[in-house]
Computed example of a mutant assay.
Amino acid sequence: MDKRFLGRTGLEVSELCLGTMTFGSETDESTGHRILDEFVAAGGTMIDTADTYSAGVSEEIIGSWLKTQNRDDLVIATKVYGEAGPGLPVRGAGRKHIMAGVEDSLRRLQTDFIDLYQIHVYDDATPLEETLTTLDTLVTSGKVRFIGASNLTGWQLQKAIDLSRHRGLEPYVCLQPLYNLLDRDAELDLIPVSRNEGVGVIAWSPLAGGWLSGKYRKDQGGPPAGSRSNQADWDAHDNDRTWRVLDALQTVAGEVGKTPAQVALRWVMQRPGLTAPIIGARTPEQLADNLGASGWSLDDDQVRRLTEAGDAPLPYPHNILRLPQFVRRAQ
């Protein structure tokens, strides 16, 4: 598996990142350890989790596995923000919770440091200065190597970067947004800001919750048996654009002799500014399929056809800004 630098940092990560949201819920400890072993055996180095995944059990499963590994070979990313367990209050990104949260994550992960510590979502109740100065303290202390964020708007990301630069604080070096062939809003502001500021991008849900796995067909009339989708999700996706994307995905998959999931992941891997998609395998079989996205490339025409199948009208002001008479640089 190829390696890539995370944004403008000197940190190299694998071109696929293993997401572990299902560890502790749909994936038990022994299966999780097997998935981790197989991911590393394939050349994977970056593993993503969060303090809220299965109320901390995901971190514990990684931790019990991590103590048998060469820690320096791995890049462990986790997140802080949300409720510590079902029914418990959301704690946010204030100093008190971050300082307690990092200690809890270090304990569960059984490690002395976290490679990438991410704010899970923007906290509109906490001054951004409080969040960023606290994260800077964690880097200075050696408990955290790099910081990042997930689920921001474009202006929130830019504000955080500008404030860090102005105050001389450690900046966000990684963004974790929703991004796939069907969910492409990140292209409007988040990815351009990331590219301009040298921020790495690791995309969550690169298979759109299974819609890009090849299991969904228009003639089914509803979600396939065994999927995590429900009727409301089906109704939200049952439109001409979705089926146009899935048709293009199946066509390209046939041309390259790969599964639709592998092609969908490969498209994300080849997008400008993207560091890695986060693959969320519940089973070793799903992992094996996802790993097949590595080691080959789509050609320019295939990328173009997949991209154009999912193109949608631009919202204001992007529709104005991208008119030919106003564009002065190649996009």
Rank of each mutant, 00 (worst) to 15 (best):
98 I>A: 04
236 A>H: 12
85 G>D: 13
211 W>V: 00
283 T>E: 05
97 H>Q: 02
113 F>N: 06
256 V>Q: 13
256 V>M: 06
277 P>N: 04
63 G>I: 12
293 A>F: 09
93 A>N: 14
205 S>W: 10
125 A>G: 12
209 G>W: 01
112 D>T: 11
165 R>H: 13
270 Q>R: 15
86 P>A: 15
93 A>E: 12
116 L>C: 04
187 E>N: 03
98 I>D: 02
104 D>V: 07
257 G>Q: 05
151 N>F: 08
127 P>V: 07
94 G>Q: 14
180 N>W: 05
92 G>D: 08
217 R>N: 09
142 G>A: 04
143 K>H: 00
292 G>W: 09
232 A>D: 14
148 G>L: 02
147 I>M: 05
299 D>C: 00
287 L>S: 07
50 A>C: 11
211 W>E: 02
90 V>Q: 09
165 R>N: 11
200 G>V: 01
146 F>V: 06
236 A>K: 15
300 D>T: 15
93 A>G: 01
148 G>T: 13
57 V>A: 10
214 G>H: 01
27 T>V: 09
322 R>W: 13
301 D>T: 14
324 P>E: 12
177 P>V: 05
171 P>T: 02
211 W>F: 07
123 D>L: 11
274 L>P: 00
227 S>N: 06
89 P>A: 14
148 G>A: 04
116 L>I: 14
19 G>Q: 01
262 Q>V: 07
160 A>Q: 11
177 P>R: 05
159 K>L: 13
311 D>P: 02
158 Q>T: 10
326 F>R: 05
231 Q>Y: 04
324 P>K: 09
267 W>E: 06
132 L>E: 14
169 L>M: 04
32 G>W: 09
262 Q>C: 06
299 D>F: 13
137 T>M: 08
157 L>A: 09
289 D>L: 05
33 H>G: 00
91 R>Y: 12
124 D>K: 13
305 R>G: 04
158 Q>P: 03
190 L>V: 07
45 T>A: 11
207 L>G: 00
87 G>Q: 14
133 T>S: 14
283 T>I: 13
4 R>C: 00
220 Q>E: 09
243 W>G: 05
40 V>N: 10
298 L>N: 12
106 L>A: 10
188 L>R: 15
41 A>H: 11
19 G>A: 12
